[in-house]
Amino acid sequence: MKFAYYPGCSGKGTSVEYEISTKAVCSALGIYLQELADWSCCGSTPAHATDTLLSAALSARNLSLAAEAMKQSGATKLATPCPSCLANLKTARHHMANQEFRRKVDKLLDSPCPPLGPKGEEPLPETYSILQLLVEDYGLENIAAKVTRPLKGLKIAPYYGCLLSRPAPIMQFDDPENPTSMDRLLEALGAEVVPFPLKTECCGAAMGIPRRDITARLSARLLDAATTFGADMIAVACPLCHMNLDLRQEQAAKASGVSYDMPVLYFTQLMGIALGLPDSDLALDKLSVSPAAALQKIGKEISA
């Protein structure tokens, strides 16, 4: 399996553990991720909050690069671990179906996007989340077959965030109210998934810097629920969610007046543990809240 790969800016910084574990897990499963040469930022929330056209153009540059790279390499799909990048890349492609919009985007670019085919075929590739590709393309049975250290006894709250499956008409993934892909993946790893009703509740997204009160309040709600439902840890698939729940956990605690000690791991880190990958591939030391105590449940020792 070979996918073109768009890491997203946070993968090189604040979510470096997501990036390291994603690459390691894919490599262990025999999935080849071909990173786009010279990819640029999708613009994230600031771009689409500023203007739809600007946002689409920043994404379109990358989609054009991907189209070219995939033609050369034979990669079948474009993958990204980051739901925010995913949403922007998918939304841009969605809007580009409108010819008038496409022409305006082209005017912002150095060279126009590859034009639609004679029957209206879209040459720009659709983007998929790493989670979707692992669950739907690689398959849970195949993943389960490679598990060497089952996460038996580990109670995990699966947290998807709001972007992975919304807006449903564009994201076209899982159930927008009750997604279960990550649940099933974690179960395939042997973990016990707690029924987490706040799966798709917003964590506060990018408001952390300008309005910390918002993220603290919303993240506290999620941490409260995970604690109440008896989770040992939260599994996430989004760098922003991770930052708000892990790095900003103390800020949330201040807002709610409750102290938390809730490890928050990327699902790829949990996959790496279950697949028996070396610690250097898991980057657990990058987490703010140490998962050491929780991981003792499955006999995994890490230096706190």
Binding site: S15, V16, D38, L54, L58, K107
Partner: peptide
């Protein structure tokens, strides 16, 4: 934890990205 690199990632195409903003 080295999660915030001190230096930016400057890409080759940074001028191309900059032109997108200028045209916009």
């Amino acid at each position: 934890k080295k999660k915030m690199p001190y230096l930016p990632h400057l890409i080759r195409g940074k001028a191309a990205v900059s032109r997108i903003f200028k045209r916009f």
